[in-house]
Amino acid sequence: MTKIVVVTSGKGGVGKTTTSAALATGLAQRGHKTTVIDFDVGLRNLDLIMGCERRVVYDLVNVINGDANLKQGLIKDKRVEDLFILPASQTRDKDALTLEGVEKVLEGLKDMGMEYIICDSPAGIEKGALTAAYFADEAVVVTNPEVSSVRDSDRILGILSSKTRKAELGEGDIPASLLLTRYSPERVERGEMLSVEDVKDILAIDLLGVIPESQAVLNASNSGAPVILDSESDAGKAYEDAVARFLGEQRPHRFLTANKKGLFGRLFGAQ
């Protein structure tokens, strides 16, 4: 059984690609055969975040057009077993991505025994984003605690409830969960940032995880290693928790309160 998951947000720059990379890597680390697909045609970036940019030969559009077969298009991750990347095309032709073509690719991945297919959606509500979401069984909505991001997430939730294949077939809404990123408990405590409860209240969906604002995220993208591989970092741990919850485990949310520990606590204290 293959589960197709779209990582989406509406607004750009909130952490969709970072999340797609971390989620896919985390699932593969737990032994689930996973492919992560970059749907951002023309603005390929997942390859950089996954650190495989120099190994890209073929891309999603090549596979759709039959210039390459699926096995040639997939890049096998060198660090984690069972993890594959399908990069976006750099073509400027936005029509290159057809629903039929995408369906064929997804079917091919199912036949290869993929357990999870993570679709990294482009920003916006245009065709690219709709195509990334269309075949999804489940959605992860990435949101920053900031007004425009929350509003756009709500808009995306509305679109998800009517524009996916499941919705069109009358099978109802696909489950959607919230991943709040760039969270700063210090600023929340000072009343300068929407709290996780505020965002949950407004969007009214389940909370998958809260990723703290962290230097580790930039370090990870700088070096091309998904932040979840930095298992000592706060963001890495938070993504690890989110993956566990995604798989149905119950885990308390961490990193929601400001760190008031002194030097001693930082050196010797556990979480």
């Binding site: 900031e146 007004v147 929350v150 509003r151 929340v188 000072r190 009343g191 300068e192 940032m193 929407l194 709290s195 505020d198 209240d201 407004i202």
Partner: peptide, 10 residues
């Protein structure tokens, strides 16, 4: 606080 203003507007 700006966060409560943000929540109300949203």
């Amino acid at each position: 606080k700006s966060a409560s203003v943000a929540k109300e507007r949203l």
